[in-house]
């Protein structure tokens, strides 16, 4: 069970003056249950890449295998794929349209042809998992705050019970509280349901805190692919392609440069503090 991408290319407006290579020979294996971060500056191909995972975009050449089967082969059940790979777009709250929150979350499972009882069960479960209080269920989505609306939109995807959850900048435009709430819920979901989570983000600090693997996109190609510690070692190269490492990485390299015996792999505040403390203790 996994997603496998082989030699995937995607060209926008092929054969016209606006032709652009958005993906170039991408090869990736995304095993079940991983928590993966995708980073890259605007226009690097991250969003194009994730839209291939559930067949919304069809590669110009190459193949995408879902659980061993090529999704581009004749007669592949695309509907089923789209219920297995749930995609949460940027600003997903713009896609809410039903009269109340609960009905909106029911829309997805209802279209899977499930029984009304099962639809309701799933909607309740999904809303519980995103941490939305029951008193909001009968409200119009437009009465909710930005963070709440976004959670409703995510619940709408979860109610389809996907095996892979892809989130394209789920925290853009939220305040720190909304951001932490959503990312904590996603991390909890990942732990509870053992689903694969793919998180696209501009915040290196968030990525360092939550994911176990980072894929760095640049000009449509996979530039780095590895654990956060490994990837952020290339902080100078990351800067050249318009990205950065988490801020503590700079501190650790700075201190190491001045002869401190600190761990330059540290990517979170806690790791950095522990490492500096250990280094200070050694000195005294």
């Amino acid at each position: 069970m996994s997603i496998k991408i082989e030699h995937l290319n995607y060209v926008y407006s092929e054969g016209t003056a606006f032709e652009r290579h958005a993906l170039r020979d991408v090869n990736l294996e995304l095993p079940d249950g991983q928590f993966i971060g995708v980073i890259g500056h605007t226009g690097s191909g991250k969003s194009t890449l994730i839209q291939h995972l559930n067949g919304l975009l069809r590669g110009t050449s190459g193949a995408v295998y879902y659980n061993g089967r090529n999704i581009y082969e004749e007669g592949y059940p695309m509907r089923e794929l789209r219920s297995k790979v749930g995609l949460v777009f940027q600003y997903p709250e713009h896609q809410l349209f039903e009269v109340d929150v609960f009905t909106d979350v029911c829309f997805g499972p209802k279209n899977l042809g499930l029984s009304p009882e099962e639809v309701e069960r799933r909607a309740y479960e999904a809303l519980r998992q995103v941490g939305l209080k029951e008193k909001h269920y009968k409200k119009s989505p437009f009465e909710l705050s930005g963070g709440q609306k976004r959670r409703v939109a995510i619940a709408g995807i979860l109610a389809m019970e996907p095996e892979v959850l892809v989130l394209d900048e789920p925290t853009a435009g939220l305040d720190p509280r909304g951001r932490d709430d959503i990312l904590d819920q996603v991390a909890k979901l990942h732990a509870e349901r053992h689903i694969t989570v793919i998180l696209v983000s501009h915040s290196m600090e968030d990525i360092a805190r939550y994911v176990e693997r980072i894929i760095v996109m640049n000009k449509g190609e996979v530039r780095y692919d590895g654990a956060p510690r490994e990837v952020f070692q290339h902080y100078q190269e990351l800067e050249q392609i318009g990205l950065a490492a988490p801020q503590v990485t700079y501190l650790m390299h700075d201190l190491a440069g001045q002869g401190w015996p600190v761990d330059t792999d540290a990517t979170t505040v806690e790791e950095a503090a522990d490492s500096i403390y250990a280094a200070l203790a050694k000195k005294c």
């Binding site: 700079y250 700075d254 201190l255 505040v269 806690e270 950095a272 503090a273």
Partner: peptide, 30 residues
């Protein structure tokens, strides 16, 4: 982030001043 690292270190008993704002400042204080 620099303030947070300094704060974590203070909690461990390291004598850093309050209100460190940048990584540069933190490195100097350390």
């Amino acid at each position: 982030q620099a303030t947070l690292v300094a704060y974590e270190l203070q909690k461990k008993g390291v004598g850093l001043p309050d209100g460190i704002l940048s990584m540069k400042e933190l490195a100097e204080e350390l």
